[in-house]
Write a protein that binds this DNA or RNA. Structure first.
Lengths: 150, 150
DNA sequence: CGTGAAAGATGCGGCAC
DNA sequence: GTGCCGCATCTTTCACG
């Protein structure tokens, strides 16, 4: 699927996508052109799907991270569709997983402070009959968005 | 702290950091030059701290996401230091938070399948006396790494 | 903040092996 | 697949209004 060089390219790009193809090519032991072709290939195969910037949340007063575990009460297809749309309509929710175990869904919420979090929480539960919501507040983000090795 | 235009620039860059400054400048209603000056400013203020690529995990057989909640037994400074180093030494752990509530830490683990996850889990607990570990398996990643609004 | 411009760096593609 | 080379484009920086 991926050879060693592709894996190294992905690793380097996760670390720093702003570096020039020439620097990257040198690191993985290729010419700039060969490196560019591999990157284009990874894009065409749908493996590389874009670039984003890393932002220092704390510098912008978005230091509060909360993980909310949700147990739902209703399980009809219609209700679940509404539930998903409602969750996705809240921009401060940066991650949304359907999980197994004691709870059904898990959200990651990023915002400024408790007051703001409470507004989001109220908005989240206002129109939905939920069975239980447990919130875990991150006291310290030790690592986030670490690169994946392939 | 940030005016509207900076916020729009950050939003656009989160969405697509590969677009040219000309396109970006046009979207936010600035000249290319002014846009560049703002971006450099955001970098100098430590707000923009880099660029990374978005990768389709599923296309690379990394579709398994697990959230592990951990309650620790020991709480001495030395032990906690070892604990952190040990967690960070495992590359498949992409997120690591100290949390409040029933548990003390929460990990996000990304890997290929159950067998691989079990290896990571064994490695995680082998040298550490933990009080409790609860794993929530993501059955479906509905949203991940969504842009933050400022 | 805008315009204009200039220099250098970069992405991209063709071509040969 | 790879490397070499050139062109068009882009970033980066400047002066000036």
């Amino acid at each position: 699927m991926l050879d060693r060089i592709d894996a190294r390219i992905l690793m380097e790009l996760q670390r720093d996508a702003a570096q020039t193809q020439r620097d990257l090519a040198e690191k993985v032991g290729l010419s700039q052109n060969a490196c560019w072709r591999r990157i284009r290939n990874l894009q065409e195969r749908g493996i590389l799907i874009g670039q984003t910037v890393r932002i220092d949340r704390e510098a912008l007063n978005h230091g509060l991270v909360v993980f909310a575990m949700i147990r739902t009460r209703k399980h009809s297809a219609d209700w679940l569709k509404l539930f998903r749309a409602h969750v996705l309509s809240i921009p401060d929710i940066t991650e949304f997983h359907r999980i197994g175990g004691d709870y059904d869904y898990m959200l990651k919420i990023v915002t400024t402070d408790m007051k703001s979090y409470d507004r989001i929480y109220q908005r989240l539960i206002e129109k939905l009959e939920l069975d239980a919501v447990t919130s875990y507040f991150s006291m310290e983000t030790i690592a986030e968005n670490r690169p994946i090795e392939f």
